[in-house]
């Protein structure tokens, strides 16, 4: 097969229409032809530029949030993790907060207080949060990678709205990380978050449309500083 014939196949492959019967011949040639391997990359590059011509349609904020929630959940699903972290990770992150989740939150908080009481140097840390009517705590685990926000005094919201939780870095924009879920039987609202908490200086919650907003609106219901002072 000549280079020219292979180039036809490389172009077809780059736009995704190479037939299986053609692929074998192409790959056989590529295995021994460096110039054609370079050409293959070039055709892929050219085809890969086609989407940039489209009018960019930004994805909804929830897509990023859902993706990263899944990624962090899988990161923390390692069996090598301590049992109490696996327990915290098992708390549902969806809006329908369950009794199991509520129980796990209570256990996590108790463990946090217990750990702090033992004076462990790198133990869990509890930060106070408050608003006009709301008060609560953000319990962060020993490694600073998991947080459980527990809040009382928040009013119920219609289905079209949600309490969105934001982590605010020293510089840059607030990052929407999760939503507060209502507790069972009027219990505390809770939210679980993953990430490097040391990157942020404060936390806040705002009322946003269900599904979240790209930036917080001017509807803050609580806030708190993420420092141990």
């Amino acid at each position: 097969m000549s280079h020219d014939e292979v180039a036809d196949l490389l172009a077809l492959e780059a736009v995704g229409v190479l037939e299986p019967s053609e692929r074998e011949a192409m790959e056989r040639h590529l295995a021994t032809c460096e110039p054609c391997r370079v050409a293959a990359a070039q055709y892929v590059d050219v085809a890969g530029m086609l989407p940039t011509a489209l009018e960019l349609v930004p994805p909804p904020a929830r897509l990023r949030r859902n993706l990263m929630a899944q990624v962090y959940a899988e990161t923390n699903a390692s069996p090598a993790l301590p049992w109490y972290r696996r327990l915290v990770n098992a708390i549902p992150t969806g809006r329908a907060f369950t009794l199991v989740g509520a129980a796990a939150v209570v256990v996590a908080i108790v463990l946090g207080i217990w750990g702090a009481g033992r004076g462990a140097q790198q133990g869990p840390v509890a930060y106070m949060v408050s608003g006009t009517t709301a008060t609560g705590t953000l319990d962060v685990n020993s490694s600073g990678t998991q947080g459980v926000l527990t809040v009382t005094g928040l009013a119920p919201l219609p289905a079209t709205e949600a309490y969105e939780v934001w982590l605010i870095p020293p510089h840059g924009s607030p990052k929407g990380v999760t939503f507060l879920s209502p507790g069972v039987d009027g219990g505390p609202w809770t939210a679980v978050m993953s990430g490097n908490m040391s990157l942020y200086k404060s936390i806040a919650a705002t009322v946003e449309p269900a599904g979240g907003s790209p930036v917080p609106s001017n509807t803050e219901v609580l806030s708190g500083q993420l420092s141990e002072s």
Binding site: H3, D4, A7, D8, A11, L12, A14, V15, V17, P35, C36, V38, A39, A41, Q42, Y43, D45, V46, A47, M49
Partner: peptide, 27 residues
Amino acid sequence: VKGRVRIALDKLRASLADRMETPWQTQ
């Protein structure tokens, strides 16, 4: 169809040579 795909991509790579991450080499 095969010819059109090849020719179209060859023209595009010529027009976009400055933007490509893999330098184009003629064979």
